[in-house]
C-alpha cells in the first residue's frame, strides 16, 4: 500500500494518503470510530499488562459480585465478577484479543483468497468464469451463519475452526467485488497499453489492475471485520466457537445466560463490548467508503 502511495506522489497532485485523510476527517463519526478502534487494538495488544488479574483466576469468596457502583461492589473488581468469581474487567480486556485476532485472521484469509479467485475469474475464459461464479452463488445461497454452523459441526467446535468457517462464508463477497472491478478495469486504455508493451498475465493482474480495484475491497474488508467478530461471537454463544473457559465475548455470554435475571452485569458487559467494537468498525467503514469512493463523495 505504501509503495503505491509513494509512486503516485507527484508535485502537482496532492498526496493520496493526505487526500484520503482529508475526506475521512470530514466524517466525525468515522474519526470517533477510529479512536475507539485504536483503543480496542491497544487492549488487544497489551491485554496481559492492562488486566488487573489473570482472566481465568477464580476468587471463590467473591462470586457474582456486582460492579463497584452498586451495593456490594468493590474497587477490587470494578465491573464485578462472574459466577465462578473471575474478574469481569480482566476477562473483557482479554476477550478483546480474541475478537481482534478473529477479525484480522478472517479478513486476511477471506480477502486474499477472494481476491485471488476474483482475479482469476476476471481473467479466465468464459467457461471457467461461469463455473467459479456459480460456485460462489451456491455458497451465497446458504444463510452465512447456518453454513458456518454446519462447517464448524464438521470440523469440530473451536475458535480456529469457527474462523475458518467464517472466512469461507465471507469469501464470495470478495470474489464478486474483485471480479466486477477487474472486468470494468480491463476495458481501460492503460491496461491495453500495458498489454501492448508486453506485460504478462501475472503482471497485468497484480501490478497493473489490482491496485486500482482496491478501494471497494478495503471498504469490504472493514465491513467483514465487524461481521467476523459478530459471527464468531454468535458461534461462541451457540457453543460452536471458542470453548469455556476462554474469555471470548460470545462464549462469556453463553456461560452467563442462566444468570440473566439475577446478575445483569455478567450479561450486559460482554454484549456491550461486542456492540461498541462492531459499531466503531462500522463507523470507520462508512467513513472509509465515503473517502475512497469518488462517486459517493458528494452525498
Amino acid at each position: 500500500m505504501s509503495d503505491t502511495v509513494a509512486v503516485q506522489t507527484t508535485p502537482d497532485r496532492p498526496n493520496r494518503l493526505r487526500e484520503f485523510w482529508h475526506y475521512f476527517r470530514e466524517n466525525r463519526g468515522a474519526v470517533f470510530g477510529l479512536w475507539i478502534f485504536a483503543a480496542f487494538a491497544f487492549c488487544a495488544a497489551f491485554a496481559p499488562f492492562l488486566s488487573p488479574f489473570d482472566p481465568t483466576e477464580q476468587f471463590r469468596q467473591n462470586t457474582l459480585q456486582p460492579p463497584v457502583w452498586q451495593a456490594g461492589g468493590s474497587w477490587k473488581f470494578p465491573l464485578g465478577t462472574d459466577p465462578l468469581g473471575r474478574d469481569m474487567l480482566s476477562r473483557l480486556i482479554e476477550g478483546a484479543r480474541y475478537s481482534f485476532f478473529v477479525g484480522i485472521v478472517v479478513v486476511t484469509v477471506a480477502a486474499s483468497g477472494g481476491i485471488l479467485v476474483g482475479l482469476i475469474a476476471g481473467f479466465s475464459p468464459k467457461w471457467l468464469d461461469t463455473i467459479i461464479m456459480r460456485i460462489m452463488d451456491v455458497i451465497l445461497a446458504f444463510p452465512s451463519l447456518l453454513l458456518a454452523l454446519v462447517l464448524v459441526a464438521i470440523l469440530g467446535p473451536s475458535l480456529t475452526n469457527a474462523m475458518i468457517a467464517i472466512a469461507i462464508v465471507l469469501q464470495p463477497h470478495y470474489v464478486r467485488l474483485t471480479r466486477a472491478s477487474v472486468l470494468s478495469e480491463r476495458q481501460k486504455d492503460y491496461v491495453t497499453a500495458a498489454r501492448v508493451v508486453g506485460a504478462g498475465y501475472f503482471r497485468l493482474m497484480f501490478i497493473t489492475i489490482l491496485p486500482n480495484c482496491l478501494a471497494p475491497i478495503i471498504v469490504q474488508g472493514a465491513l467483514s471485520f465487524s461481521t467476523a467478530i459478530l459471527d464468531a461471537a454468535a458461534l461462541g454463544f451457540l457453543g460452536m466457537g471458542a470453548q469455556p473457559p476462554t474469555p471470548e465475548w460470545g462464549t462469556m455470554l453463553a456461560e452467563a445466560r442462566e444468570f440473566i435475571l439475577r446478575a445483569w452485569w455478567v450479561v450486559t458487559f460482554p454484549g456491550l463490548a461486542i456492540l461498541i467494537t462492531v459499531l466503531a468498525i462500522n463507523l470507520m467503514g462508512d467513513g472509509l467508503r465515503d473517502a475512497l469512493d469518488p462517486k459517493l463523495k458528494r452525498s
Binding site: 461471537a233 460470545g250 455470554l253 450479561v267 454484549g271 461486542i274 456492540l275 462500522n282
Partner: peptide
C-alpha cells in the same frame, strides 16, 4: 445494524 442480536 451493529447489534449482536443474541445479546439484544
Amino acid at each position: 445494524y451493529s447489534m449482536p442480536i443474541f445479546w439484544w
